[in-house]
Design a protein around this nucleic acid. Structure first.
Length: 458
RNA sequence: UCCCCGGUAGCUCAACAGGCAGAGCGGGUGGCUGUUAACCACUAGGUUGCUGGUUCGAGUCCGGCCCGGGGAGCCA
């Protein structure tokens, strides 16, 4: 598939996995390090990004261009090399390429190239979002990110879900989902491009509900925007969100779907990103793999909010935020619940309506809604969802309570006027999932080009 | 938005209580070695974030600003 100058190039991933011993192989990639040996060879670690491990090249000083080009093989230099793949003579790697011909494709000035062959701080690498994927850590993050993307689509597609492209530019502000970015055209007169105020989407959920109530099982997975001025390790102004929405499904069915979904992502990641996880476990987050394996083997417990409050009140824990019926759960409460009480994943359901959005289905008690949050040990909330209010009158009453502009939701109310049906859905912040799975601390390190308040590097 | 910490060589960081701005890594040169974050020697490299002030003297103290990090709140 890859080729240059009439030569077919083998990805290093393929070389390492298929091990075509004693065959001539051509590889291309970027130099990680070079170690010169006076035994007449130079050792070059070459990485092409296809695999976490580099390939060791052994380049003799006797080659025609060695005298000129070997000293130029600084970190970051791109290189094309052909040679015989043999079992490594030295320790530390199984294979090596006995190079017979090589050429520099693009040099790299060691005086100015920012990525050195040493560990850099995450903070420093954040200022080079275009170069950091060349490092082990970020290469691993973005390979995992891609696989996870595919597994999410695969999970839903295999279960008969249809993928819906919900709009990026919207009118609805999805009440309570945070601050919005305004979208305007270039018009100098200040007129609205669409004739009315428009925003970047904060969630595809409302638009998606229409498709659940027509195609049945649907999901959306796209970029989402929040103009919230929160600069933390868990917030981005632009992030990706997965949102399934299913007709004829109640809260308990939704919980089953969410659990199956999490188990699928955990188990496939543990298998197909094993080497990356081992890398993170060793260098970034000790005990990562053990924690993920424990999560997958634990039973997912279901607890109503009321019971959670009772447990927290009876715990005698010195919580900083006092607990009583009606409060939202803080980090300290979630951690006590998942790590000390349940010791595993928990679905908390039936929250007070006051702390949840208007579209969640009201319970018969009139004061709680059919919401569910999945809380994970050492992490907190990873998934939030609910059964949706399908009764027109109840929904309108709720919107009135919240003083919402009913006219702007005419289409949403239509879904309850014509063939309304019970339906449910949840949302999952993709980058937060990636943080959980990689053990990294900062959400800016799991998205290629992070956007946060006041900061946009590339 | 609020609270805390930081900004010194390309990178990671030192510099007591205001007194000649340093080390390791990286770069260059030489040596050594089937090398593994290689090793040894030498060497180059600085407007201490910007700005105003206090002082005989400021990296260090004070004011303002800029940038970065962490936490809280809000959320996904």
């Amino acid at each position: 598939m890859l080729g240059l100058f009439g030569k077919s190039i083998t990805p290093i991933k393929e070389v390492l996995e298929a091990k075509p011993l004693n065959k001539m192989v051509t590889v291309a990639g970027w130099v990680r390090t070079r170690r010169d040996s006076k035994a007449g060879v130079s050792f070059v670690e070459l990485s092409d990004g296809s695999h976490i491990r580099p390939l060791q090249l052994v380049i003799p000083i006797t080659l025609e261009n060695s005298g000129r080009d070997l000293p130029r093989l600084h970190p970051g230099t791109s290189l094309l090399a052909t040679g015989l793949l043999i079992p490594s003579i030295g320790k530390g790697q199984e294979l090596e390429l006995q190079v017979e011909e090589f050429g520099i494709l693009g040099p790299s000035d060691p005086e100015s190239y920012p990525i050195q062959k040493k560990r850099h701080s995450f903070e420093f690498l954040r200022s080079y979002p275009h170069l950091r994927p060349r490092t082990n850590t970020f290469g691993s993050v973005f390979r995992m990110r891609s696989r996870l993307f595919f597994q999410i689509h695969r999970f839903f597609q295999e279960r008969g879900f249809y993928y819906i492209s919900t709009p990026i530019i919207t009118q609805s502000d999805c009440e309570g989902a945070g601050e919005l970015f305004r979208v305007k055209g270039q018009s100098e007169s200040g007129e609205e491009f669409f004739g009315r105020p428009t925003y970047l989407t904060v969630s595809g959920q409302l638009e998606l509900e229409a498709f659940a109530l027509s195609l049945g099982k649907v999901y959306t997975f796209g970029p989402t925007f929040r103009a919230e001025n929160s600069f933390t390790t868990r917030h981005l102004s632009e992030f990706w969100m997965v949102e399934p929405e299913v007709a004829f499904l109640d809260l308990y069915g939704l919980i089953g779907l969410a659990e199956e979904f999490m188990r699928h992502l955990l188990s496939t990641t543990l298998i197909e990103s094993r080497e990356e996880l081992e890398f993170f476990d060793r260098w970034v987050s000790a005990g990562l793999i053990k924690g993920l394996e424990e999560s997958i083997n634990k039973e997912f417990v279901i607890m109503p909010y009321e019971e959670v409050i009772r447990v927290l009140c009876e715990s005698k824990e010195p919580f900083q935020y006092p607990v009583h019926w009606g409060v939202d759960l803080k980090t300290e409460h979630e951690r006590y619940l998942t790590e000390r009480y349940v010791k595993g994943p928990v679905f908390v359901i039936d929250y007070p309506k006051e702390i949840k959005p208007f579209y969640m289905k009201l319970n018969p008690d009139g004061k709680t809604v059919r919401a569910m949050d999945l809380l994970l040990p050492r992490w907190g909330e990873i998934i939030g969802g609910s059964q949706r209010e399908e009764e027109l009158r109840t929904l309108m009453e709720r919107m009135e309570e919240l003083k919402m502009d009913m006219d702007r939701y005419w289409w949403y109310l239509d879904l309850r006027r014509y063939g309304s049906a019970p339906h449910s859905g949840f949302g999952l912040g993709f980058e937060r999932l990636l943080l959980y799975l990689t053990g990294l601390n900062n959400i800016r390190d799991v998205i290629p080009y992070p956007r946060t308040p006041n900061t946009i590097v590339v």
